[in-house]
């Protein structure tokens, strides 16, 4: 059980690299969808006695993170002409390098954290840290508004993985609320993306840097 969970977590870490290294917006969104789908299996594997709750949570995550949210993002770029990331603030190769260093450090750092014995050997914490870090990297170094949303999604995915440590303590209602907020958040971001696209005929965030003191 733990082995299959760790396998999925390794795949999630790999998907971080794919998102950071790809120029194509479609590949980014699709990989984020795959990451969401992979995540959604985890509640079933991590829960000590998976019951209806774990199944509901897995289903909810699969629908929101794997299907609906990437769907919104594809919807948002349907009229976009330039479908690849241009000149990110940090290049693709350096950001892959940073991601590798970050993931390595996450692994080392997680080993030194005071964890409960049942979580000590698992990859949950390092994968969570690595995914959050990659999300931050995407958020801060990419110029397209849509890629920044993908970064935000990765950040949320990383937090979701960390939340699995507490799967038995967090009430279902709250889990559902968190997913609902993510859904509503990306929905509104999608609408704003559409407005940005029609206002500037571009999703480049350098158009969004006019206000300053």
């Amino acid at each position: 059980m733990t082995q299959s969970a760790d396998l999925i977590l390794v795949l999630i870490i790999l998907s971080n690299f794919v998102i950071l290294g790809s120029r194509e917006l479609r590949v980014c969104i699709r990989t984020a969808a795959v990451q969401g789908a992979l995540l959604s299996v985890l509640p079933l594997l991590v829960h000590r006695e998976p019951g209806s709750r774990a199944i509901l949570m897995a289903l909810g995550a699969a629908v929101v993170k794997g299907l609906v949210v990437p769907g919104f993002l594809f919807q948002a770029i349907r009229h976009v002409k330039i479908r690849h990331e241009v000149e990110p603030y940090v290049g693709f190769v350096p950001s892959l390098f940073l991601c590798a260093v970050g993931s390595g450090l996450a692994l080392l750092f997680a080993g030194s954290l005071p964890l409960a014995p049942e979580h000590a050997g698992s990859l949950l914490v390092p994968a969570s840290l690595a995914t959050m870090l990659s999300g931050f990297l995407v958020l801060t170094t990419r110029r397209k508004a849509i890629t920044q949303v993908v970064g935000y999604l990765m950040l949320e995915n990383g937090i979701f993985i960390f939340g699995l440590l507490l799967i038995e303590a967090m009430p279902f209602l709250v889990e559902a609320g968190v997913l609902l907020d993510l859904f509503a958040g990306i929905f509104i971001m999608g609408i704003v993306l559409n407005h940005i696209q029609s206002e500037f005929s571009s999703l480049d965030t350098h158009y969004l840097s006019d206000l300053k003191d």
Binding site: L139, Y152, G185, I188, H195, E199, L208, S209
Partner: peptide
């Protein structure tokens, strides 16, 4: 306006990351 769109985007992104 373009400016209010910029402000909304920043509010939404910074607020969402903060709350995350």
């Amino acid at each position: 306006t373009a400016h209010s769109l910029e402000a909304t985007w920043k509010y939404l992104m910074i607020g969402s990351v903060g709350i995350a």
